[in-house]
Write a protein that binds this DNA or RNA. Structure first.
Lengths: 149, 149
DNA sequence: ATAATAAAGGATAAAAGTGTCCTTAAATAT
DNA sequence: ATATTTAAGGACACTTTTATCCTTTATTAT
C-alpha cells in the first residue's frame, strides 16, 4: 500500500506520540529500535516530519531528541501522509489514467471510488493519539516484541 | 496504488480483451499506442501475461500478435494481478509490520481489514470481459482519446 | 570556554523500478 | 528456400527508492 518510507514515518510518529512528552524526548536510536527500522534512514524521515513544526518537534544537544506536543498528538493520521507527500495516493486512478473522472471514468472508477473514500476517511478520522492509546492498552502493537522484550 | 508496470498490465489486458479475438490479433505497437504506454516496456509486461498461457496468448510472425480466448476474457481482474506478482499487495499490513493479525494487530488493523476485503472482492468479482464491455458501450474509457480521435 | 551530546544535513551507494535498443526465434507469404 | 513479419529475450541505461556514513550545527553540562 505505502512505500517503506511512509510505513516508517507512520510507525515512528505513532511511537513518538505514545512515548514522548515535551519533558521526555526520544532519541533516534530508541525510536528506530522500537519500530524495527534502519536508524539513519529513519532519522531522515523524521526530519521530514519536523518540517513546519506542526507534527514532530526536535531539540538538539544533551537531553535533546524528538517529541510531540499534546496538540500535535490530536492531529489525524492524514497529517503524516501529507508531510510524506503521499496525500495524493488516493486521488489517482487505479489504472493509472491521467484523466479519470465521473464524466470520463476508467472501467473500475465507480467501484473503486467508494473504497478510496473509505481510505480517505480512515486517515482523516482517527487521531495519532488514539492509535498510540491502543498500544498503551495493549489492544494493538507496533512491533513484534512484547512489553517484557 | 499499483506500480506503473501493473497499471500498464491492467490497461493492456483490458484493451486486448476488448479488441482481440483468436482471429483478430493485436500488435504491440497498436496496444501501446491505445493505452498510452511505452512500447518496448509494455512488450515485456505482456510477455509476463502470456506465461502459463491462461490469460494472454501470442503468435509470432505475419498476422501474429496478442489475443485472448473467450474463456480467458471471463477470468477475474485478479488474475492479472497474480501474474504481475501483486496479489500479496492487499495481504500486507498498512504500517508494514511483518506480524500483524487478529491476535496481534497493528493499531489500524481492524479498520483497514474491511477496506482491504472490499478491494480483494473488487478484483475477484469483476471479469476482465465486463470491464471491456463498459468501454465498448462507452460507459468507460481506457485512454484520453475518443472514438474518432 | 571546552567537551560532550544529539539532531541536521551532505555525499555517496546499492537495489528496485522504469524504460530503450538490438538480436534471436518462430511463423507466414512469396 | 528466402525474405518478411512479429513476438521473445538479452543487454544496457536512467530514475527513484532505500539505505549508510561522515561532517556540521545547536544545545547542554562541566
Amino acid at each position: 500500500m505505502f512505500s517503506k518510507t511512509t510505513e516508517y514515518a507512520l510507525r515512528a510518529t505513532i511511537y513518538i506520540a505514545q512515548k514522548s512528552t515535551a519533558d521526555k524526548k526520544l532519541g533516534i536510536a530508541e525510536i528506530a529500535k522500537a519500530i524495527d527500522s534502519p536508524q539513519s534512514f529513519t532519522a531522515k524521515i523524521i526530519q521530514q516530519l519536523t518540517r513546519g513544526n506542526t507534527l514532530v518537534s526536535s531539540v538538539r544537544g544533551p537531553n535533546g531528541g524528538f517529541f510531540m506536543t499534546e496538540k500535535a498528538k490530536r492531529l489525524p493520521v492524514r497529517v503524516i501522509l501529507d508531510l510524506m507527500g503521499e496525500d495524493s495516493k488516493f486521488q489517482t486512478c487505479i489504472l493509472g489514467l491521467k484523466q479519470c473522472s465521473e464524466v470520463k471514468p476508467c472501467p473500475m472508477h465507480f467501484e473503486y471510488k467508494p473504497i478510496k473514500d473509505q481510505l480517505i476517511s480512515l486517515f482523516a478520522d482517527r487521531s495519532i493519539e488514539s492509535l498510540a492509546e491502543d498500544i498503551n492498552t495493549e489492544q494493538a502493537f507496533i512491533n513484534s516484541r512484547n512489553k517484557r522484550g
